[in-house]
Amino acid sequence: MHRFAKPSVFLKLTGAMMPWMVTLTVILTVVGLYLALFASPVDYQQGSTVRIMYIHVPAAWMGLFCYIGMAACGAMSLIWKHPLADICARATAPIGATFTALTLISGSLWGEPMWGTWWVWDARLTSMLILLFLYLGYIALVNAFDDPERGSKAGSALALVGAINVPIVKFSVDWWNTLHQPASVARMDGPSIDPSMLAPLLIMAFAFTGYYFIVLVLRVRLELNQRRIRALQLSGVFDDRAPTSGDDSNLAYDQGHNAGAGK
């Protein structure tokens, strides 16, 4: 398993998979959007506003899914200390935060026609808001250190602590909500859902998942390549173009050593 987690293997493997993933995701998105926006039936109460659900619900799933993924990466980095796990967790956070923000925005847009107000302290929306805070805290933490590795490690620990906390927050917000909620507010989705609505919902969820993996792979590749550049910079290979500027003591040092090694 470590073989696949090796950065070079990862780069090669994902490079080969990328075109397929992009194609699949584009197809899923087009089909999903067509079914959601044109082919699916209109809700007899909500009219066409129900179509917001096809964005809102998959985005909410992805918001949670990304957080679980982040925490899983954090656990892997703690147990196996593999740097790729840290990079994945770090790359997942902004994507998850975006999905969560999308959930909140689409929920708010949906709420306006349904409840007549942009924001309701509904249990689900409130939980998603707290999830967004957890994401923002993670992102702020990993970027607050001069040493990126230290930031990633601190982030992994926070992601795990947050993951323990998410169910507790969910439970307490539900509890708080049932206590304070005026009963008249409609639920966002009914207890059962018609298959004609379920199909586009699932297809959209898969499309979102595909999008997540594409962006994740791109971000991880970017980070790996950046690290490679930094490693090369530190090794002094870029120095010989301009020996008078920059850190030339380093250069002299390396050259001296190379000469010694060559003997």
Partner: peptide, 29 residues
């Protein structure tokens, strides 16, 4: 003290790499 380049190349044999990569100059990738 060993230069970074030498060490990166040395990682070829190791099972796990961290910051480095097998082929720092691999342009194909």
């Amino acid at each position: 003290a060993i230069p970074m380049m030498e060490w990166l190349a040395d990682q070829d044999d190791a099972d796990e790499t961290d910051t480095g990569d097998n082929h720092p100059f691999d342009i194909d990738q």
